[in-house]
């Protein structure tokens, strides 16, 4: 059974994208699992890490994926050579891109198309957007191709985030130990609650937990983390792992960074050990509850 892990919180800058990258690379590089990473965020940052993204000539500031490496002019008629996850909302074919990391494939974002899906308000269409990703990921072709699917979401509670949650088997909520972030956690827990009401008992959505992220050695962070751990019921969902604020986590995202992945660092590197431990915890939860 393919595991579908969503990183979601509607506040920006919490570490959704970074965490999606780390989890996907851990899954592919360290665990050797066939992994697909999906970029549902119109900002398309995650996509740019793995493939070349071009500025969309038709939509200022928007990005579109570069031509697919398998595309051959003249052979593939009826295909413009680009593919993104947004295609599922337009009834178009979706073709994953290979990445430089073995076992890891990408379904990139398409800014304009995703934004259009996010802006849908009409009820009938909305329901389609909500369920479309789930339907796509339930296709036998997709299920048979991957062990793990990681989804990165936009910082919103809109249709795209809801679509990701509806498709997910597991949710991770990365959060800083700060006021607005905890409020974001609250918002995400609402979505999780709604979804758990909605699903049958056999097919539940599993909240792996809140991953304290960018934690610094300051009183505020410590006391908020402690506060969360003291809350009845909530404490079960505070991951017993913490990601500290470290320069390396952003440095590694730079285009010509070397090494490119945190998991290419020496085995005893503090940052690698820290993220590895968090990913290990998440995967352990995903596979063994």
């Amino acid at each position: 059974m393919t595991k579908i892990i969503v990183n979601a919180t509607h506040k920006g800058g919490e570490g959704k994208t970074t965490n999606s990258i780390m989890l996907a690379e851990y899954s592919a590089l360290v665990k050797g699992l066939k992994t697909l990473i999906i970029d549902m965020d119109p900002q398309a940052n995650l996509s740019g890490r793995y493939i070349e993204m071009e500025y969309d000539p038709a939509y200022r500031g928007g990005k579109i994926p570069a031509m697919h490496p398998d595309f051959e002019v003249g052979v593939d008629s009826g295909w413009d050579g680009r593919s993104s996850i947004a295609n599922i909302f337009y009834g178009e074919e979706v073709i994953p891109y290979p990445t430089a990391i073995s076992n890891l494939e990408l379904l990139p974002a398409h800014s304009h198309k995703l934004q259009e899906a996010e802006a849908v308000t009409k009820n009938e269409v909305l329901e389609k957007v909500h369920l479309q990703l789930k339907r796509f990921l339930e296709l036998p072709d997709v299920r048979n191709s991957y062990d793990v699917i990681i989804i990165d979401t936009p910082p919103s509670k809109g249709p795209l985030t809801i679509a990701a949650i509806k498709a997910a088997s597991h949710i991770v909520i990365p959060a800083q130990m700060e006021q607005f972030s905890i409020e974001g956690v609250y918002g995400m827990l609402q979505l999780w609650k709604q979804e758990s009401y909605y699903r049958t008992k056999e097919n539940q959505i599993n909240l792996i937990g809140i991953l304290p992220n960018q934690v610094r050695d300051i009183k505020l962070h410590k006391q908020f983390l402690n506060g969360l751990k003291m809350m009845k019921g909530v404490s079960d969902y505070v991951m017993p792992r913490v990601i500290k604020k470290r320069a390396i986590y952003t440095e590694i995202l730079v285009e010509d960074a070397n090494p490119k992945s945190i998991f290419d660092l020496p085995k005893n590197n503090v940052a690698r050990l820290e993220y590895e431990s968090a990913c290990e915890y998440i995967m352990e939860k995903v596979y063994h509850g």
Partner: peptide, 16 residues
């Protein structure tokens, strides 16, 4: 936060 978690636990799959 506490109420949300508790409600999610108590009404799983029951309140659509």
């Amino acid at each position: 936060l506490e109420e949300t978690v508790s409600a999610a636990h108590n009404y799983t799959g029951e309140l659509r």
